[in-house]
């Protein structure tokens, strides 16, 4: 995995690397700043029952990231997504809430002072079975932080009230597996699916949904979805076996406003900048993370990214820290790396 490129030296000075004993997939930045620095959660990716979630502490001044072994805990199966509670969630205790998806939606309370991680709840949306249809992803509503939406391979999305630990509503969202979900507003969310469509739902009228995009070859699965929190007109999605990041404008359904096609292999992860409405970062199988600035007008030769970072291997995960917008986290192989923007 040695990078022979001449720029590897300058990169190593600016990127902070955490080496994990196991391959990593899920990753999340906390919105809280704790005594020891900014908290990051990483989930192992072992194709087995026994997996772990490790909590790391990142100090951006000293550019160090260190694991907090006391806060490491077991997780059944690899978490498909991790997310810390949005800053809007007010809680009586000082601890941070972490949600994970997989066989169930689980909530964990991380209390650094007492060095404990407490499982708060295991949420099962099935009334008839003690098992829940497997979850591919979820999104925490940051406007209404008691609301959390999960999506499943059983074609449904479930909206939870996590304060009461009850299902607020469950919708058959797609014709096939739902791969990702993203909130736009307190009551509006969008989802992508193996059926190749992006649909928008409004909880005030659950009977309807609107397809705002369909993949060009029918039934090319859409894998991930990111809604631009700074400018809710725009969202981004990625397709199976495609090097494209498709940018959509919710006002003009069916027609993408831009397609970012400079990855040399398939794209695995996308994240909008938390502090700017026109920047998005994508990571792919070509080992590169690209930062794009969406132009007002696309040129005839397509859109070039602003900047590029080359990791050692396929980038599987990418998160842009909203509490530290200068930092982007990526996961590849058994490494988690923090990149300064």
């Amino acid at each position: 995995m040695d990078n022979s490129a001449p720029d590897s030296l300058s990169r190593s000075e600016t990127a902070v690397t955490y080496d994990s004993p196991y391959p990593l997939y899920a990753m999340a930045f906390s919105s809280l700043r704790s005594s020891s620095g900014h908290r990051i959660a990483v989930g192992s990716f072992l194709e087995d029952y026994n997996n772990r979630i490790d909590i790391l502490s990142f100090d951006s001044d000293s550019m160090t990231v260190k694991p907090l072994p006391n806060l490491s805990f077991e997780h059944p199966y690899p978490p498909t997504k991790l997310m810390f509670s949005p800053p809007s969630l007010r809680r009586p205790s000082s601890g941070d809430l972490l949600a994970s998806s997989g066989d169930f939606l689980r909530l964990w309370e991380i209390n650094e002072d007492s060095s404990t991680v407490e499982p708060i709840s295991v949420l099962n949306n099935s009334k008839t079975s003690e098992f829940c249809a497997p979850l591919t992803s979820f999104d925490w509503n940051d406007v209404e932080p008691k609301r959390l939406g999960t999506c499943s391979i059983d074609t449904t999305c479930t909206i939870w009230d996590i304060e009461k630990s009850v299902v607020e509503t469950q919708l058959i969202a797609h014709d096939k597996e739902v791969h990702d979900i993203a909130w736009g507003e307190a009551r509006v969310f969008a989802s992508v699916s193996a059926d190749g469509s992006v649909r928008i739902f409004d909880l005030r009228d659950k009977e309807h949904s609107t397809i705002i995009y369909e993949s060009p070859q029918p039934d090319t699965p859409l894998l991930r979805l990111a809604w631009n929190k700074q400018d809710l007109r725009y969202m981004a999605t990625i397709l199976m076996d495609s090097n494209k990041v498709v940018i959509l404008d919710i006002r003009s359904p069916t027609m993408p406003v831009a397609e970012l096609e400079r990855h040399q292999a398939s794209v695995n992860a996308i994240a909008w900048a938390p502090q700017s409405c026109k920047h998005i970062c994508s990571g792919g199988d070509d080992t590169q993370a690209l930062i794009w600035e969406l132009p007002t007008v696309a040129g005839p030769n397509g859109i070039d990214p602003m900047s590029v970072y080359s990791a050692g291997s396929e980038i599987n995960q990418l998160q842009w820290s909203s509490s530290q917008p200068d930092w982007i986290g990526i996961a590849f192989a058994n490494k988690m790396q923090l990149l300064r923007v």
């Binding site: 990716f45 194709e47 690899p78 979850l135 499943s152 292999a265 199988d285 080992t287």
Partner: peptide, 22 residues
Amino acid sequence: FVQKKKSQNVLRKILHDVPLMH
């Protein structure tokens, strides 16, 4: 760039194989 492995290997596993494990 030359791709060695199957495209979107981990992401596919997360979306398809991991759910089947459950």
